[in-house]
Design a protein around this nucleic acid. Structure first.
Length: 598
RNA sequence: GGACCGUUAGCUCAGCUGGAUAGAGCGCUGCCCUCCGAAGGCAGAGGCCAGAGGUUCGAAUCCUCUACGGUCCGCCA
């Protein structure tokens, strides 16, 4: 920003920036409740946490509704409608509120002066794509771990959903004021990377002209052919016909690196960028697993014991064995979990504990793990571990992403890891592009199964939510282009300061009201860790926008572009504010807003 | 045997952590372009929120049980 005297606009009193209208009105309600206590109309010491101010489901109920009277009735030992009446006369005195009616069991329905909506539009334009940013997470460091696929091959569709979900969640939390770290845990310490190494070794022999057979327990996928050749280029024939002890460690290293390069490329194709790649291997032989377990041991949570066999399962090869166990039942788990096998090696759970111990020690205030649904069985033990390690101070939320089924031409794409054929992230992105992939993946709750129809995702119609939202944005761009061609000069700053009193039609105010919901929606989405809410909101915003647009067909005064610059200004301000919110929302989802559609 | 997730219109899905007459898209019926992109919009029909109990002023939402579908259950990651 340049130095100098800034012109301070003496804004219209109603045009002051309102970053969250619902929060403002809720504050107003609380103030008046306090005044009622002061005046002896309400008893002192009532909890107001549950008082909400929200958009009513039915537009006929006004612009906002508060449940204050109903929430307070019981503790105040008063009738809800009596409280509502008193509150209503007070609220009606505020200049922003044109009416406050008691309705139903004790709701208070508020109607707002249209200048309030004008203020919302101005605020959105002033803040630009920062409109709706929240300080909800101010001062909170959050770690979001997602994807974390084994480095044994390219990412497949299931990973794609986790990648999109985790990435959008991270952006959402960032938008809500958190200090976010995006993290990927590389499972490079277990037996599966040995399998990878052996598989690459076979491809390596193949590159040397040998006939090889891929037995069970090896990865037969084509994607390792190049790695085998690369290995040959690097070491020549040094490993040919040698025992594992000569090559396993080196090939494992080489192959893991190659797979991580592959995965990083896959993520880049989707537009996902991690802050941290954390290696499981780095936990071994460095005392870090031991340190984490010592911490638990110090809390009396590690013991030697024998687990009961799981009931209902055939205990054919079950033998009672003494193992080192973590007393996870003390922290909400159903059974205690082994951290060391009977042969003295760590279970997979041990490095997981150490990894989360490390996250806790890095000072995060909250942890989020995004797992595939097939890892649902580990939720309780991981939560137990973090609870124990942090002594309950660091919450761990684990979001499971359900299965994705891909359809094309009405047929399901099947995947089979055994045969080495599976639908990869790359297949999907190549087919429909990263933007469509990302948006579509967020049109379902994370814990609901998702049938992804690739044909529908490319369709240019209302059926396709990506298109529908992009279309709204493109229409605004089109208006701006036309305005510019007409010689109008309407930058956001000018629009924000414009007299918006010309916006009076219900269709126009509906768009403004939707825009007013944005900051509130961001907060609920962030609080619940549910980025899909953003996608659904954008669809709704596009909906009211398209409705207004079409009203312009019948009623020329509702068109965005009017004859004069002055007359166009409030209309275009509204359209621009709408575009700003769409751009901000798409930004969170990692989707580029479209300037035009073809 | 147990744990976790799901079950809402004919189909695909939302439902803002307990609020009013439960919403959207597709499909179905009827309308709207001499007009900023109709790639859109408006209106209508369509529901025992899987079922049964419970909690309270109030339940699709919270608790218990049941049914169906999915994922998983010590020495595999």
């Amino acid at each position: 920003m340049t130095l100098g005297v800034r012109v301070i606009h003496r804004a219209h009193p109603m045009n002051r920036p309102q970053m969250n209208l619902f929060a403002d009105i809720r504050a107003l309600v609380l103030t008046n409740l306090a005044a009622m206590v002061e005046a002896g109309q309400l008893p002192d010491g009532l909890a107001t946490d549950n008082v909400t101010v929200e958009p009513p489901r039915d537009a006929a109920h006004g612009d906002m509704a508060t449940n204050a009277a109903m929430v307070l009735a019981k503790p105040a030992k008063m009738k809800p409608r009596d409280i509502a009446e008193m509150l209503s006369t007070r609220l009606a005195e505020d200049e922003r509120i044109t009416s406050a009616e008691v309705a139903g069991p004790g709701f208070l329905n508020l109607r707002l002066d249209s200048s309030v909506w004008h203020g919302v539009v101005a605020a959105a334009l002033r803040a630009g794509t920062d409109y709706g940013r929240s300080d909800l997470g101010a001062g909170k460091k959050v770690n979001v771990e997602y994807v974390s696929a084994n480095p044994t091959g390219p990412l497949h569709v299931g990973h794609t959903r986790g990648a999109v979900f985790g990435d959008a969640l991270a952006s959402l939390l960032d938008f809500a004021g958190h200090d976010v770290t995006r993290e990927y845990y590389i499972n490079d310490g277990g037996a599966q990377v040995d399998v990878l190494a052996r598989s690459v070794y076979l491809r390596y022999l193949e590159a040397h002209g040998q006939e090889v057979a891929f037995e069970d327990g090896t990865y037969p996928g084509d994607y390792l052919i190049g790695v085998g050749e690369a290995l040959k280029a690097k070491v020549g024939d040094a490993f040919v016909d040698k025992g594992e002890q000569f090559w396993l460690a080196e090939v494992r290293e080489f192959a893991t690196e190659a797979m991580m390069d592959l995965i990083r490329e896959d993520l880049a194709a989707l537009g996902v960028e991690m802050d941290v790649f954390y290696s499981e291997k780095s936990l071994y032989g460095t005392g870090r697993i031991e340190a984490a377990l010592d911490d638990l041991r110090g809390k009396g949570l590690i013991y030697e014991g024998v687990l009961e066999p799981p009931k209902g399962k055939k205990p054919e090869d079950w033998e009672p064995r003494e193992q080192t166990l973590f007393k996870s039942t003390d922290h909400g788990d159903d059974v205690d979990r082994p951290v060391m096998k009977s042969d003295g090696a760590w279970t997979y759970f041990a490095p997981d504990i150490a990894y989360h111990y490390d996250k806790v020690q890095r000072g995060f205030d909250a942890l989020i793990d995004v797992f595939g649904a097939d890892h649902g069985g580990y939720v309780k033990r991981m939560k137990a571990a973090v609870s124990a390690l942090s002594e309950g101070a660091v919450p761990l939320d684990i979001k499971l992403t359900q299965l994705v089924k891909l359809f094309k031409h009405g047929q399901e794409f099947k995947m089979s890891k055994r045969a080495g054929t599976f639908v990869t992230l790359r297949d999907v992105v190549d087919e429909v592009g990263p933007d469509v992939t990302r948006f579509m993946m967020l049109t379902r709750k994370n814990d609901a199964m998702f049938d992804f129809d690739l044909d529908a995702a490319l369709e240019q119609s209302k059926e396709n939510p990506v298109f529908y939202v992009q279309y709204a944005h493109a229409r605004v761009t089109s208006v701006m282009r036309k305005a510019s061609e007409a010689g109008f000069d309407l930058p956001h700053e000018r629009l924000a300061d414009a007299d918006l009193s010309g916006l009076t039609d219900p269709a126009e105010l509906a768009v403004a009201a939707k825009i007013a919901e944005w900051p509130r929606l961001v907060e609920t989405a962030a609080r619940t860790n549910e980025p899909h809410r953003i996608a659904f909101y954008l669809y709704e915003l596009a909906q009211v926008f398209h409705a207004l647009w079409n009203r312009g067909n019948d009623d020329p005064t509702l068109r965005f572009l009017q004859d004069s610059e002055e007359a166009s200004m409030p209309k275009i301000a509204l359209a621009s504010a709408c575009a700003v919110v769409i751009a901000a929302g798409l930004g969170i989802l990692g989707v580029k807003p479209a300037e035009e559609l073809r």
